[in-house]
Each structure stands twice: as C-alpha cells, then as structure tokens.
Design a protein around this nucleic acid. Structure first.
Lengths: 141, 141
DNA sequence: TCCATTGTCCGCAGACAATATACATTGAAC
DNA sequence: GTTCAATGTATATTGTCTGCGGACAATGGA
C-alpha cells in the first residue's frame, strides 16, 4: 500500500481547472476527517509529481485552501492541517445548493438517465449522509 | 406577466461560461416539456437583450443546442424546437453522474450545511422526480 | 555556518470567452 | 418579382484565466 493520497481524482479533460479539482478533492478529505488537524499534507512538489501536473498548479490549490483557513503553509515545513471549525453557512446557501441539485438532476434527465435510477441514487445518498457525518461543530458567526 | 423566459438564471460571476449556462437552462426547459416541439424560442437578439449579454453569446448557446439536435436554426425564422427523443445514455453515464452527486454533497458539507438538511432535500428531490417525468421515449442506439 | 528543501514570485504562451463589427440569407410586404 | 428589414453567421479583437518554466527567498537541520 504505497498510495499516500487515497482518493484524489483529477480529470485533465474536464473544463473545471485542475487546481480547483485538487482543492475540492482535498477539501472533501478534510471535511470527512481523513485528514486530521496536525497532519502534514504532501509537499507541493511531491503531490505535483504524483498527479503529473506542475508544481504551481498544486501550489495554487494549496493557496486556495490556505485562504479558506483549512491549512497553513509555511516554508520548509509544508502544509499542515489546521483545527478549523466548519463555517456557518450563509443565509441562502441552502437555497442555492438545492437549486444546484435540481440542475444536476435535470441535466441527468437530458442525458437520458432513468428517473427511477436517479431517485434510487438520491435516496441512497440521503441514507449514507447521516451515518458518515455524526455531529458538527460550528464556528460562531 | 411579461416574462417570456420563465426561469433562466445565469450568473455572470460563475466560472462556468455564460453560453453554457444558457444552453443548460434551455435544455432543462426542453426536457421538462415547457418548450414543446414546434415552439419558437426567442430570437438570439431578443434573448441577449433580456439577459444583458451579447448576441453572439446567446448564438453560441443556440448553436450548441442545435448541434445536439434539440432545436433547428434557420435564418430569418429563428429557433424552432425539434421533436427529438431523449438520447440513450452512455454506458458509464450513471456512474459519472453519481460521482458528481457525491461531490455536490461533499461540497455542501464543506460549506457547513447540516447533514439532516441535505438528506431531507435529497429525499424530497427523489420523490418529486418520479411524478414529474412519467414515461420516457428513447431513441434506438 | 552552510545547504538542501520547500514555498513564492514574475513572466509567458496558449486557450478560451465575450464582444464588436460586418456580412449573408430569407421571409414577407407591396 | 423587387425590396427591405429581420435574423442567423462569420471574422477579428480584446481581455482573462490556466498551466508552466525558471529564478528567488526563507528556514530547519547537519
């Protein structure tokens, strides 16, 4: 088991830029607790090597996460995971998310996916959510 | 009621290009039957006016839909909706869609949305799907 | 003190999106 | 049938973004 970055899929053909794909993937690992506070992320160059992209591309992703408060970047020490509480969502974050969900569903229908298939997938996802994330600590706004 | 384009939200600040947002929005209206075959879409210039973007941006969206077989573009006659059967999905379309769904959920969690809220929204969406789209006619691959 | 490691800065080339502008086509009025 | 305004189309321009190359700066450890 030499895979140090368990699940970090990036798709060079996707229209969403690579540095943002990396940031999103890491964000997911962070929020799911796979990367606990105090942990060291791989160095920029190492991760770039593994993913087959340029260092600055990974650096951009790390900078994004640092700006959001997930990690701390220090020279010669790499990136360390901060003990960051989840942000409290904005007032209409829920509405905007639901709109995105509806768009995703509509797009699936335009591709010809079966409504029954989609409904099953949605219910399955709903079930798995509540188990994965037990309880959340919020930051005070 | 002077609103000729019921629900077509575009976000100039979004990283996804405007012409693709327009195409996606129209595609949704088409698949949900709000735009029946034979209907005329607004002219490129009119829609551009309404949305506050350049004509060529809308033209690009229309061309996309025309390439996909949703509409027919003819000079001086505008865009007419074609009677197009839903495409039959590719072999791994389902898997890729489920991955996108999971990413959407993970992103919501990173924003601090409550798992319970998300689960409820997912279940609600699952329920509404099966009612909205009764039966689908597929094209033969 | 010295040096290898690691993040950072600056500039660049290519791609792409949105626009401006001019053009080609065509249905309809007469 | 001629004419013309309406409408889609083609080309060029401009700005922005991505990913990259290379040089630089800081810094922990030998």
């Amino acid at each position: 088991m030499t895979d140090s970055h368990p699940t970090l899929h990036i798709d060079l053909a996707s229209p969403v830029p690579v540095y943002r794909q990396i940031a999103r993937g890491l964000r997911i690992l962070l929020v799911e607790g796979n990367l606990a506070p105090g942990h060291r992320l791989p160095t920029i160059r190492d991760l770039a090597m593994d993913l087959g992209v340029h260092r600055n591309t990974v650096a951009e992703a790390y900078r994004l996460l640092a700006d959001e408060g997930w990690i701390e970047l220090r020279r010669r020490r790499g990136a360390t995971v901060l003990d960051r509480p989840l942000p409290s969502p904005g007032p209409d974050a829920g509405d905007r998310w639901i709109r995105r969900l509806n768009e995703l569903i509509a797009e699936a229908l335009t591709q010809g996916l079966e409504p029954g298939f989609l409904a099953a997938a949605l219910r399955r996802a709903a079930g798995s959510i509540e188990n994965v994330i037990p309880d959340t600590r919020r930051e005070q706004p």
